[in-house]
Design a protein around this nucleic acid. Sequence first.
RNA 1: GGAGAGAUGGCCGAGUUGGCUGAAGGCGCUCGCCUGCUAAGUGAGUGUAGGGUCAAAAGCUCUACCGAGGGUUCGAAUCCCUCUCUCUCCGCCA
Length: 426
Amino acid sequence: MLDLKFVRTNMDRIEQMFKDRGYELDLSRFRTLDEKRRSVLTDLEELRHERNTVSDKIAVMKKQGEDASSLISQMKTVSASIKELETELPEVVDELNNLLLLIPNIPHESVVVGRDPDDNPVIRTWGEIRDFEYPPLPHWELGEKLNILDFSRAAKIAGSRFSLQSGLGAALERALINFMIDVHTRYHGYSETLPPFLVNSESMTGTGQLPKFREDLFKVEGWDLFLIPTAEVPVTNIHRDEILSFDELPIKYVSYTPCFRSEAGSYGKDTRGLIRQHQFNKVELVKFSRPEDSYGELEALTADAEDILRRLELPYRVVSLCSGDLGFSAAKTYDLEVWLPGQQLFREISSCSNFTDFQARRANIRFKRKGGSGTELVHTLNGSGLAVGRTLVAILENYQQADGSVAIPEVLRPYVGDLSTIRMGG
RNA sequence: GGAGAGAUGGCCGAGUUGGCUGAAGGCGCUCGCCUGCUAAGUGAGUGUAGGGUCAAAAGCUCUACCGAGGGUUCGAAUCCCUCUCUCUCCGCCA
């Protein structure tokens, strides 16, 4: 959510931003509501002021035994008017707020204006793309041959877009989770946290999933609870409605959670394999930063995510999302895309974003400067470090060998009993 | 699921025969004084948000906020209703 005053005084900039993002929203109602709000508020406050002063007078008169009945009857009409305005004001405020919640974040000046992913500039590329002396297999074929992925049984149990991993397929997933958390806690200074996997609608609103993206979420029937689509939601909401101290910033969390997404509107996309699932595992990095440091923290956070790929020796590139591809709440996003030889393409494996004060305003996460008066909004950031399922995909496809086996990356071996290879029949 | 207790400022904790209580007192914190250092002492200050005034900031001023929402009343932290959360005991359970 943007600041009301900012929107009021920067309508042109907002309109331009809509164009850059390819976003449609009619702001004509905004002005009307904004003015209405202030006029109602002013009237209301004047009436309340009158009520307060006269009520005090009544109290004094009664104490002195004087007759206050004329004042009291006079105040009855004032009270009635107050009540009227008190029902009107929230209606105006709610509508204004709902409008405000539909305005996306302002992209950072470094974000390239563009339409779609094709316009995303590549920032850097790392690692050697391996030459195969045979056509490399996609991970779903490797996984089924090795008996570690079973998509047909997953469909029986839950339906499409679910997976069943067994043996080393399950163990490697677990190894990756532990490996990632270990690297981020030991070498990058993050604190581990294990949050609820279901959250209420207030939390979903705080990070921006609601009200606009309800159809992407799984909701628990009969409860005000949603399955989290990312750890970003519960972890960012850890500090909802809190005032943090200047000294403790930045706060850095790493959190493993499963993620649940309805993938509405993605019918026919990535139907095979582990790429697009209703449920997947992710290790997430979340930061609460001082405003002046947040873009530096974004670079650091991206580097922290990249470090996992480097340690796993998986080739990847970093792209900066253009205005048209940028998420609703983000001011700037780097995507990490890992090379998948089985499909001959770079595939998103992490998305690292600076939300500036956009989420913090919604979620009411503030801090206090040392000598300063008043509070300021923190900046929030997050990024996958990494999507675990997709990392497994990348390992299977990049580490596959001519005989159908898959080598296990050096750094993961301690996590799987020092095994070096996944072979047929275990 | 049954029975009971509670929710006040950064924290603890008064205030419930409705009326200068935005809220006593204590702790903490900030600035100053004092003190070889520390501790102690001492003076002042210390919530958030939204209006108005102002070019803006400061300042001044108004309004709201004592878990949330509603009601009674000229007037509610105080009375009534609903909800949420926390705690204790019993039951159940990984």
